[in-house]
Design a protein around this nucleic acid. Structure first.
Lengths: 236, 236
DNA sequence: GTCTATACCACGATAGAC
DNA sequence: GTCTATCGTGGTATAGAC
């Protein structure tokens, strides 16, 4: 909470002379991204940051709390931007029904902007985030759900307005699918190679051009009539 | 590879009297699902299985190879069924163009069938699988990509035929999104609570009814024209 | 307050006795 | 095939230096 660095005003700090907390955060972001949370040891992490082993426990309390600090540093501003963009299109609409595309883009663009900003962790951070979504550790899941609760609630109302043919429950599922496709893609790089041959996702605009038509069409699709019967058991 | 159990023919084996390898596999499937790979210790795993600590290393070589064995036990039959279903609809089509829905269902149904079969691990296993997809550990990623390479290649050809408006590259991306939404959903339970309030995914047919319209519409959507310009940088 | 050195217990893995 | 003893390394807690 409190600023812990001794005041050295006016001095430009590079990566190795930054204060201890920031050095730890930067090293942790990189290593957690490369090897995952469990597989990154505090010993290699503190060595990479050039600080003492005990510094993590002193400044953050535990390895888990360090992980949460790594996430909030980037996530809070990103979700803030998402909410601001949503508020702007709601204001511009001035009571008229919202466009599904615009709402979706307001949600996707801050994530892509974060991905292109190397000063804010760039792709590394988003891959870390995509992995965190699927992590089984309960402390990560509950932390993320708390971080996202407000933002998701706002967007759900907006989508509900833009997609009046969907019930609240149906929309909840679809937003779930959207988040799945998004986080799986952002965690990317290796996952992409599952399907071979595609060049690296070097251009984020290109990624958005691929993702948007898929998601918009999926969101707009009419729900399946409950009259249709599925044949799950036809195998034998 | 070789069968390592001493021959005790004709004896019905329950969960606690099954042979050591099976006891370890069952306990591992449950614990890896609940806590993830790294967070599950061999000590608690062997205690739950009622075997000695060193038995895992003796029978499987390492914790990593045990994990792979847990996955193949369920995955090989599931992907086999996927391929058989695809071959059947190809045969039934008799040269006529394939339906996108049918190809997609041939891919989804074996996964759902696995989820309802408690004798094959039920939901537990699919949640484990969904998590494995997003795991950063390289040995898991390379293992899964090898397991899936054949099956995915077959389905890509089928979808390419069912969706002639998509280029090969565009389709690769969309299958990537499909797998993202699917694995994220199957990993579910906790992730669902991100969006609150939805009842447990107790009915898999219901899940398929929600998922299918979303995915089919996304797959069928026309690609975004390259004439449209995206405004990624309109924030400031 | 900030940082360091160090001790502690649990972990995965393995060698060798049985 | 199974077990015990042991090794190197992991996260964490703390006492004391600056």
């Amino acid at each position: 909470m409190a600023v812990s660095r001794t005041a050295r005003k006016g001095v430009a700090l590079d990566a190795t002379s930054a204060d201890t907390k920031t050095r730890i955060l930067d090293a942790a972001e990189l290593l957690f991204m490369e090897h995952g949370f469990e597989a990154t040891s505090l010993r290699q992490l503190t060595a990479a940051a050039g600080v003492n082993l005990a510094a993590v426990n002193y400044h953050f309390g535990s390895k888990e709390e360090l992980f949460q600090a790594v996430l909030t540093r980037r996530l809070d501003p990103m979700n803030q931007e998402r909410i601001e963009r949503l508020e702007r299109i709601e204001r511009d609409a001035a009571g008229k029904p919202l466009s599904c595309e615009k709402v979706l883009f307001a949600m996707l663009i801050p994530a892509l902007r974060l991905a292109r900003d190397e000063r804010r962790g760039g792709k590394n951070f988003l891959r870390l985030l995509g992995r965190a979504y699927a992590d089984p550790a309960p402390f990560i899941r509950s932390f993320l759900s708390a971080q996202y609760a407000q933002m998701i609630a706002r967007y759900k109302e907006a989508f509900l307005q833009a997609l009046p043919h969907l019930s609240r429950q149906e929309l909840t599922w679809r937003l779930h699918f959207v988040m799945g496709a998004l986080s799986y893609t952002l965690a990317g790089t290796d996952a992409l190679k599952l399907f071979a041959q595609v060049g690296a996702a070097d251009n984020d605009e290109l990624l958005l051009q691929r993702l948007a038509p898929f998601l918009v069409a999926g969101l707009k699709a009419p729900p399946m009539g409950d009259t249709r019967k599925l044949e799950l058991v036809s195998g034998d």
